[in-house]
Nucleic acid binder design. Sequence first.
RNA 1: GCCCCCGUAGCUCAGUGGAUAGAGCAGCGGCCUUCUAAUCCGCUUGUCGUAGGUUCGAUUCCUACCGGGGGCACCA
Length: 557
Amino acid sequence: MTPAELSESLFALIQQLGDRRRQSGSETVLDLTPSDVTLERPRNRDHGDWSSSIAMKIAKPLGSTPRDIAAQLAEGLEALPDVASVEVAGPGFINIRLEAAAAGALARTIVEAGPLYGTGHIYDGIRINLEFVSANPTGPIHMGGVRWAAVGDSLARVLKAEGADVTREYYFNDHGSQIDRFARSVLAAYLGESTPEDGYGGAYIGDIADQVVAKFDGEIGSLARDEQQEVFRSIGVDLMFTEIKEKLHGFGVDFDVYFHEDSLHESGAVNRAIERLREQGHIFESDGAIWLRTTTFGDDRDRVIIRSNGEPAYISGDLGYYLDKRERGFDQNLIMLGADHHGYVGRMMAMVEAFGDVPGVNLQILIGQMVNLLKGGEPVRMSKRAGTIVTLDDLVDAVGVDAGRYSLVRSSSDSQLDIDLDLLGKRTNENPVFYVQYAHARTQSVARNAVAAGVDRSAFAPELLTHDSESALLGVLQEYPRVVAQAAELREPHRIARYIEEVAGYYHRWYDNCRVIPLGDEPVSDLHRTRLWLNDATGQVLRNGLGLLGVSAPERM
RNA sequence: GCCCCCGUAGCUCAGUGGAUAGAGCAGCGGCCUUCUAAUCCGCUUGUCGUAGGUUCGAUUCCUACCGGGGGCACCA
């Protein structure tokens, strides 16, 4: 019996209570849907396999006390075939214990579902565009961007697991004055001049200059200065694109679409967007500039979209870009941004509304807090211009892809993340990823040894899984689909990480208590065979969970 | 001044209305001739920032304040 079936039964019982009350002449309004009748897995195992607090919520409309309602519902639940016992506790909690066979059946269900266990249908048929990282092509990917790479990719996997048709998208800001600064910086390095005042000063700038010279088909020295700068711009930006893509690929993150801001300006998409908004009456001119009246939609000020010198302001790219995504037919557009960009949210949502769409539905902006770098406990300020940056490579070199991704995706994006550079290299076994991976490797090791010892899955007798550590393990395995669904709806992949850590803990404890392989001369029994199912089911859940995080599930460690 | 995030054990953090608030790390003490000791078991620590409010019930929701971080351009 699944929790869904159990809560349906509970809902039906509640309806009966209401009906009985109405028949006896009382005015009873029970505004309840099946989804209101939730079951929780109690923290305290003594409280049973499942628990419901519904009696406290419906006591008032039913004109009775919570404990009385709970007692009536308990009686009905007890009559269900898979329910072993029901008790009423505290102010009116209903604690339900299932028959071992009913709970244990899950092991087989998981093994047979395989990689599909935990997937759902929340976003079946929904097209979602997920834009993340989108770091400017003026330098290597640094730690700020890497967090979104890990979290964004994992979120994409989670949304897919719930049926969404997900497009991972990277927006390259290859237009505007920052690119000019980048080009002038590389040119200066080539000419042996000092870094321009507003330019980028990192050591990588010199490397790029060398690479551009090697790549350019011709003699750069013979060109005029503005022609040289153009060469360094176009080839230099291309080099950065290539490097960024390669590094992300090495981190297990690949995008379906790399979108170039430049293309919006070239294709006229920006102008089309402005025209559209002008027709809607949201455009005005002032001080020689062209503005979008975002205050109509709650922004704190109106925004310049074409500057008085004729250059498009940054937001004009966003207008064209949003319109483009819209025309590509996405039902939901998600953008992940760092906290230093949270000021965009108001104007972006205003823009969405100006186009006639619904903010928060057609466009959702996920703000993640910054990564703090520490060195020996002291904060290190990252700056591309000063050249003090810590890159994706530095992280991977220090701890590897798995531990790196895991440590970034493990905490909520709402929290700032501290990464101590000195600790990265040394205390890697502090990373819980190894705890989880070890648990998975252990399931595989047990499965291998089981074959050698003559234990196979030829029998499945779930009623034999009666040990406390077995019902606890089964209880947590059962939660996996709900965890995935919640991670998808809340856009919080860290929940997957926390969950598989919990699974690993229950597994290790079970391993310590319950043997899959007979000890000594003991004959192979159905209990051993059934435990092998549970072992394999746990391995499957750990594998599925790690897969959603983009972390490998090793066969042995 | 306005906006966003955070404040929970010594440290790093989980916990979007439920029962006695949890985990890892750190500390102390136990288990390896038997499926992997990167495991497991035991001990120890809390004004859930403060004050009100809503609720049968608040770490969770609302308000104010305090503390930390980030943001408030015709820059991107």
